[in-house]
Amino acid sequence: MDFKQKINFLKFTKEQRTGIVLLFGIIIALQLVYYFVDFDPIQEKDSSKQQWLSLQTEVDSLKLHQFNDEPVMYPFNPNFISDYKGYKLGMSVEEIDRLLAFRRQNKFVNSAKEFQNVTKVPDSLLNTMAPFFKFPDWVNKKGNNDYENFSNKPFAKKEKITIVDINQATPEDLIKINGIGEVIALRILTQKEKLGGFVSMEQLKEVWGLSPEVILNLNKYFAVTKMPNLNKIDINNASLKELSQFFYFKQDLARQIVKYRSMNGDFKNIEDLIKINNFPVEKASFISLYLSF
Rank of each mutant, 00 (worst) to 15 (best):
V72T: 11
Q31R: 09
S111M: 01
L10V: 05
P131Q: 06
K283P: 03
E172I: 03
E114A: 08
S82F: 10
E58H: 07
A130M: 04
F36G: 10
N229K: 14
L10T: 02
T170Y: 11
W138G: 05
K205A: 15
I161E: 10
L10C: 12
N140W: 06
G19N: 12
K226P: 07
N149R: 09
L10G: 07
L30I: 11
G19P: 02
N145V: 08
S200W: 09
K241R: 08
E213M: 10
F9N: 04
R104H: 12
E95V: 02
T128H: 05
Q116A: 15
Y248A: 13
F76D: 00
K113R: 14
V37W: 15
Y260M: 04
T190P: 02
A185E: 06
V164P: 02
N77I: 08
D272I: 05
F36P: 09
S200F: 10
L55I: 02
L126Q: 00
F279H: 04
S124M: 01
K158W: 11
I235V: 11
S82I: 05
A238Q: 03
V224R: 00
L230W: 06
F108W: 12
L30K: 04
Q50T: 05
K49W: 12
G181L: 10
R17Q: 13
L291S: 01
I26S: 11
K107H: 10
K268C: 03
G86W: 05
K176T: 14
T170P: 10
F108Q: 10
P280M: 05
P71V: 03
G86I: 01
K107D: 07
F108V: 03
V109R: 00
Q51R: 11
K4L: 14
F246R: 03
A223I: 00
Y74V: 03
E193R: 13
P171F: 04
I81K: 00
P75C: 11
D69Q: 13
F135H: 06
Q66W: 13
I26E: 04
I233D: 00
F249A: 07
K259S: 13
N8T: 05
D40L: 12
E148P: 00
K49S: 08
A254K: 05
K194N: 13
D266W: 03
L186G: 12
G197E: 11
F150L: 00
V224A: 04
P71F: 07
V183K: 14
